[in-house]
Write a protein that binds this DNA or RNA. Sequence first.
DNA 1: GACACGTGGCC
DNA 2: TGGCCAAGTGT
Length: 366
Amino acid sequence: MRDVADFAPLLLHWFSSHARALPWRRDYDPYAVWVSEIMAQQTQMDRVVDYFNRFMARFPDIGALAAAPEDAVLKAWEGLGYYSRARNLLAAARIVQAEHGGRFPADFDAIRALPGIGDYTAGAVASIAFGADTVAVDANVLRVLARVCDIDAPVKEPAGKARVLAVARSLLPPGRARDYNQALMELGALVCRPKNPDCQACPVADVCQARHLGIVADRPVLTKTRDITPLLVATGVLFQAGRIFIQKRLPAGAWGNLWEFPGGRIEDGEMPDAAIVREFAEETAFATEVAAKLAVIRHGYTTFRVTLHCFLLRLPGHAEAAPLPAPVLTAAQESRWVLPGELSGFAFPAGHRKLIDQLANSLWIL
DNA sequence: GACACGTGGCC
DNA sequence: TGGCCAAGTGT
């Protein structure tokens, strides 16, 4: 068992040859590092890279992002989830443009003050983009250091997290925070994984207390998770005169400012087709009828498991040549009647995007 | 402190 | 399959 003083040198040496070739690691441009860190919140790196490359091509610098309409930013974010990240990213870009002359601030407190940036992200950008000696403790670091230092308190709770933070600071090699922070996270992602950690390949196994004690599986101490609630939801694609009705969700709450097909929860004992007619009337004041069932889509969430019953709807008695009616919106801020080919230009929640993908095969029914 | 906030991959 | 989890933040 080696002394913990060897931890950082061993870690940095490992990182020098095992770091993944992530695109923002080429020159550590602050804008790129910032975007990558926001995208990486609660999201695995492998899923980030494609979104990152498309985002940087679409919004190459802070000025381009600050000038972009929010709909375009949400479209670039479509499918990534946690859409407040995209809204805050745009809001922060506009603040940087207005208050920092378009240059991303280097100071930790100035970074931390931007919307969408908390303690972790401020530390990550300050160190990775600017070389500041700040820690960046994410779920990987919590896990790695809980094992290395045998932290016996739940690391997702304040007391345990504070202990990890203190250890992370004490082990930080001055001047090397950029690589130290990334190396900790890289080790957690590639070697010191939640399940099946590869201790044989671990560069700091000789320093790891949990490994030494044979209790790697007991570290970190986990917090109890919440139950997952099953949820039945109905949604309707109203297709009339060759156009489809969509609405833009309210700014706050889930999928804020994204577009959707109207719908809502199926009440206890209610049939899905009755639910969609009721929900559609409540949200738009349209009196619709079900023309066909399109799909049943299952979609997982952190705390819900949704079964989405999807219907094709019509306005009974509506003459094809007559103008399309205007809704009375109660659950949305705006609506459109769009051509099927135009759906690709709007940002939809993933469940509705899945439905759209199937729609192309279904509209011939008419 | 607790909860809302998405999504897909893994076993 | 279904539960767990991820480069967290805002309220």
